[in-house]
Design a protein around this nucleic acid. Structure first.
Lengths: 139, 139
DNA sequence: GCAATCTCATGTGCATACAAACGATATGGG
DNA sequence: CCCATATCGTTTGTATGCACATGAGATTGC
């Protein structure tokens, strides 16, 4: 007498993650329309760590080699990053922030923090901390 | 004396959501390679609600009109759903599960539930419930 | 010192995602 | 009845995101 398993889509973690991400990205796009959230992550990492090889930058921002290439290309087209050959390793392409990229990041930090806050606004402060802690266990 | 705001990318909700989603999708793809997680959501909704117009189906699965069209096209190409003109409203395209689609959903439900469980495996049972509850407040 | 192996960047193909514009069709108000 | 408005499906353009393949270059083991 096996019960047929009930599948409630709205309670599946994957579906919920997708919808929460959609809401977050809508907030991000409205508040920081100059760059995408992925591009912003790249600017943040370069600002934090300085110049990195393209693949390393991808690993530090959770993107595979194909994805980070496109993101860097689009950031370079906007003049926010620049690339240079690595003299020590001819395979490597070093990516660094331009002045414009550094300036955009500096100006945008407060707004980006507001984006995170606005995403979490339905939660109380302890709930926000708890959510972050739980999500970080799932990475 | 304004403190420069500290921006820790790894603690931003958007970045964490993206990484958790990546891990979840990797698990999904490994366990249910026949369809994508988005396609699975469509099968689940059609199984739950029966035939729906394409745009309505999109709204019920959190996809805009352009996105749901592509998903339905690819599911139809695999013979998992079929489309038919609505006699009452010539604008509408009714999407329904085929026998193969219904069968795939029925066979896959247990696996899909395992995907959700495996995604949440680093958490205890109360933590899982709490995470879901918190995320649902953010939709 | 050199061959097997690895890494890096690149390219292609496929699958979401969303904005914007479009033509066809419904519908409601006057 | 007719017009303004809304909805539906479609297309195009841009941006992730991953799998897979490839060629150039680095590294390691023996």
């Amino acid at each position: 007498m096996t019960e047929r398993p009930e599948y409630v889509l709205d309670d599946q973690i994957g579906y919920v993650l997708r919808r929460v991400t959609q809401r977050h990205l809508a907030i991000f796009t409205e508040r920081l329309p100059q760059v995408t959230s992925v591009q912003w992550a790249v600017l943040a990492r370069l600002s934090e760590l300085g110049p990195l090889s393209q693949n390393h930058l991808g690993r530090m921002t959770a993107m595979d080699a194909a994805t980070i290439k496109g993101v860097v290309d689009r950031l370079a087209r906007q003049g926010l990053v620049e690339t240079a050959a690595d003299p020590n390793d001819k395979r490597r392409l070093t990516v660094s922030l331009t002045g414009a990229g550094a300036a955009l990041f500096a100006e945008g930090v407060a707004t980006a923090l507001k984006v995170s806050a606005e995403t979490l606004v339905p939660l109380t402060a302890p709930e926000r901390a708890q959510l972050l802690a739980l999500l970080l266990k799932l990475v």
